[in-house]
Every structure is written in C-alpha cells, then in structure tokens.
C-alpha cells in the first residue's frame, strides 16, 4: 500500500504539472526535496547521537531498567507479546514521555532505538511484529501536552490567546489515540485467529 501511495503521489504530481504547463517545477522540487532529505538526516544524526549517548548513560546506570520496572506493567498491557524484562520497554517509555512533553527531537532517537530492540525480538525480520505496530500506533497519535511549535506560529500571527488550542488539541489527540489503540487491538486479534 505504501508503494502504491508513493507512486500515486509522484505520478499525479507529474501529470498535473504537465497539464498545467509547469513541468519544470517537478525537476526543481524533486532535486530540492532530495537535498532536504540529506539536511534532515544530518540534523537528525546530531540530535540522535546526543540522545543515544545520554540513553547509554541512563542504561548503564540502571535508570532505564528502573523506569521499565515502574511503568512497565502499564505499558505491557498494550504490548502483551513483550517479555517483562524486554529492553524495548525502556526505549518505548522514553519515546512516549518525550512525545508527551513535546520534545519532538528527542522522541525520534528513542523511537528508533525502541524499533531496534523490538526487531531483536521479532521472529520474522522483514515483517512488522504486532508490538511494533502497536508502538507506531501509539507514537503517531500520541498526546502532546504543549504543542509548542503551533503556539509559536499563533503568537507570531498576533493571536489574542495563543494557547487556547491546547485543550482542543489534547481532546482531538485523545480521540485519535483511543481509536488507534482499539483498532490495533481488533486487527491484532483478527489476524492471529
């Protein structure tokens, strides 16, 4: 499905550009986007190294295990396939906390780390495990207490009350997350029968 969506976006883009006489935008956009991809990845390497370095410290000092022991029982309800001592639990908890606190650039390194740990427990390394899908469902619809970026945009646009959308945002995310978790649960059980 991803292959198809990728192709459709690219192909319809080119066809629309051709029919509206703007075919040269395809060339410039594609080139610029490729460059941007490298920029994003390089930036990510910086923050990722920082957070993974800190995470290693936290691991060796035993904090991650402590965190997993405290929050593990709750998180494991959502991930029944994980072992109680799974090292993925710590990374999952770190990722979700970073998301909730709105620390977007810290969330990604922890998330990728969690995926690596989940992959170690995955019996079929080319196929997504149920735990991975649950993790991504949580991750993509995770509640953020302070949507800082958009508040900044509103502030710059001279909003009378830049933070008034926090409540509505939390409500909308809460709905998305609830349905995400329920849908994941239903799909998981339907597939396993």
């Amino acid at each position: 499905m991803v292959n198809l969506i990728w192709l459709i976006m690219l192909a319809t883009g080119i066809i629309v550009a051709a029919f509206t006489g703007r075919i040269e935008t395809v060339t410039t956009s594609a080139m610029k986007a490729a460059e941007l991809g490298v920029e994003v990845a390089i930036e990510l390497i910086g923050v990722m190294s920082l957070w993974l370095g800190l995470m290693r410290l936290a691991e060796e000092a035993g904090f991650i295990r402590l965190l997993a022991r405290v929050f593990g029982p709750v998180i494991r309800k959502l991930f029944p396939s994980l072992k109680p001592e799974s090292p993925a639990l710590g990374a999952i908890i770190m990722n979700l906390s970073a998301n909730i606190l709105g620390l977007g650039n810290a969330a990604t390194p922890f998330g990728l780390k969690a995926m690596q740990e989940l992959q170690k427990e995955n019996p079929n390394p080319e196929v997504a495990s149920p735990a991975m899908i649950t993790f991504l469902a949580l991750n993509t619809s995770c509640i953020t207490l302070i949507p800082a970026t958009i508040i900044g945009v509103r502030l710059k646009a001279n909003s009378l009350n830049p933070t008034e959308i926090i409540g509505t945002t939390i409500f909308a995310t809460g709905c998305a997350m609830t349905i995400g978790i329920i849908a994941d649960f239903i799909f998981r059980h339907r597939r396993s029968q």
Partner: peptide, 20 residues
Amino acid sequence: ILPFLIGMLVSIRVFIDSGA
C-alpha cells in the same frame, strides 16, 4: 534512514508543488 527520508520527501514535494 536517509534513503527513506529522501524517497518520501521527493514524492511529497512533487505532489504539493505541482498543484496536485
């Protein structure tokens, strides 16, 4: 993750900038 980023960005950018 670099190739995945580039692949996704190129397709999305062409889709947006073309007017599609």
